[in-house]
Simulated assay, not measured.
Amino acid sequence: MIAILKKEFNSFFASPIAYLVIGVFLLVNGLFLWIFKDDFNILNAGFADLNPFFYLAPWVFLFLIPAITMKSFSEELNTGTIELLQTKPISNWQIVLGKFWASLLLVIIALLPTLTYVYTIYSLGNPAGNLDFGSTIGSYIGLLFLAASYTSIGLFTSTISKNQIVAFILGVFITFFFYYGFDAIANLVDNNLSLKNFGIHQHFKSISRGVIDTRDLIYFVSVTFFFLFITKTKLDNE
């Protein structure tokens, strides 16, 4: 698994993918949070918190993470190298987990520079340090689990088609459905909370309050494992 992880991770930085993902993520968030005069602008909010960032980041990831994962298996299937990979003394689980952790590690690297936002808000608060650290830490933990779920979905969609664009579109669609689709359906049936609990958005909001509920963690782990499992099953049938 480690060999696959290193190979995949190095391939990201050997091409423009890693630099584009990190650059686009930081640029989009930077423009909306600090430059554009809109509802997301932290400087115009009047209070010191990072809620606009934690609202915006899942939507940006919705497009960026499928862009990271779309070639993971699509390229292997298209070139036929997946068959060569499967002849090596590694299991399909190791292949899937290696690609999963490589993609997730790239997302984590993209997140690290945003810690400067925390310091900035901490310094700009009146008085300085007037920041809800519990909510902020919870939101970052929620983002990591959300990114893991998105990554597992993206890996699965990359096994469906040899065309990377198709894999990307499917990844965006399924990720969107799991993030907000259940909320949208629930709102149509009298704001059904039980239905909302099937969606990522509800559990991300719960963790963002700063309370780490085991039910939320189990949800994210279950979604991630489910899509990794069906990815592995799809490889078994290739």
Score class of each variant (00 low, 15 high):
residue 80 G to K: 11
residue 81 T to Y: 07
residue 82 I to S: 01
residue 82 I to L: 12
residue 83 E to V: 15
residue 83 E to N: 15
residue 84 L to M: 12
residue 84 L to D: 12
residue 84 L to Q: 11
residue 85 L to Y: 00
residue 85 L to M: 07
residue 86 Q to S: 15
residue 86 Q to I: 15
residue 87 T to G: 14
residue 87 T to I: 13
residue 87 T to N: 14
residue 87 T to V: 11
residue 88 K to P: 07
residue 89 P to Y: 05
residue 89 P to S: 12
residue 90 I to Q: 08
residue 90 I to K: 13
residue 90 I to M: 15
residue 90 I to N: 03
residue 90 I to V: 14
residue 91 S to I: 09
residue 92 N to T: 01
residue 92 N to I: 07
residue 92 N to W: 11
residue 93 W to M: 08
residue 93 W to T: 14
residue 95 I to P: 09
residue 96 V to R: 03
residue 97 L to D: 06
residue 98 G to R: 11
residue 98 G to I: 12
residue 99 K to H: 10
residue 99 K to M: 07
residue 99 K to P: 08
residue 99 K to I: 13
residue 100 F to R: 03
residue 100 F to A: 02
residue 100 F to P: 02
residue 101 W to Y: 12
residue 101 W to R: 00
residue 102 A to D: 07
residue 103 S to Y: 01
residue 104 L to Q: 08
residue 104 L to K: 08
residue 105 L to T: 14
residue 106 L to E: 03
residue 106 L to S: 07
residue 106 L to K: 01
residue 107 V to S: 10
residue 107 V to D: 10
residue 107 V to P: 05
residue 108 I to G: 01
residue 109 I to D: 06
residue 109 I to T: 10
residue 109 I to R: 02
residue 110 A to M: 03
residue 111 L to E: 06
residue 112 L to V: 15
residue 113 P to C: 03
residue 114 T to Q: 04
residue 115 L to H: 05
residue 115 L to F: 15
residue 116 T to W: 06
residue 116 T to P: 06
residue 116 T to E: 12
residue 116 T to N: 09
residue 117 Y to C: 06
residue 117 Y to T: 09
residue 117 Y to N: 14
residue 117 Y to M: 13
residue 118 V to S: 09
residue 118 V to R: 02
residue 119 Y to N: 12
residue 120 T to E: 09
residue 121 I to C: 00
residue 123 S to Y: 15
residue 123 S to W: 14
residue 124 L to M: 14
residue 125 G to S: 13
residue 126 N to E: 12
residue 127 P to L: 04
residue 128 A to K: 12
residue 128 A to N: 02
residue 129 G to F: 10
residue 129 G to H: 13
residue 131 L to Q: 03
residue 131 L to C: 02
residue 131 L to T: 02
residue 132 D to Q: 03
residue 133 F to N: 10
residue 133 F to W: 14
residue 133 F to E: 01
residue 134 G to Q: 05
residue 135 S to G: 02
residue 135 S to H: 09
residue 135 S to K: 14
residue 136 T to D: 00
residue 136 T to N: 04
residue 136 T to E: 04
residue 137 I to A: 07
residue 137 I to S: 00
residue 138 G to E: 05
residue 139 S to D: 04
residue 139 S to P: 07
residue 140 Y to W: 14
residue 140 Y to M: 11
residue 140 Y to V: 10
residue 141 I to V: 11
residue 141 I to D: 01
residue 141 I to Q: 05
residue 142 G to K: 01
residue 143 L to E: 05
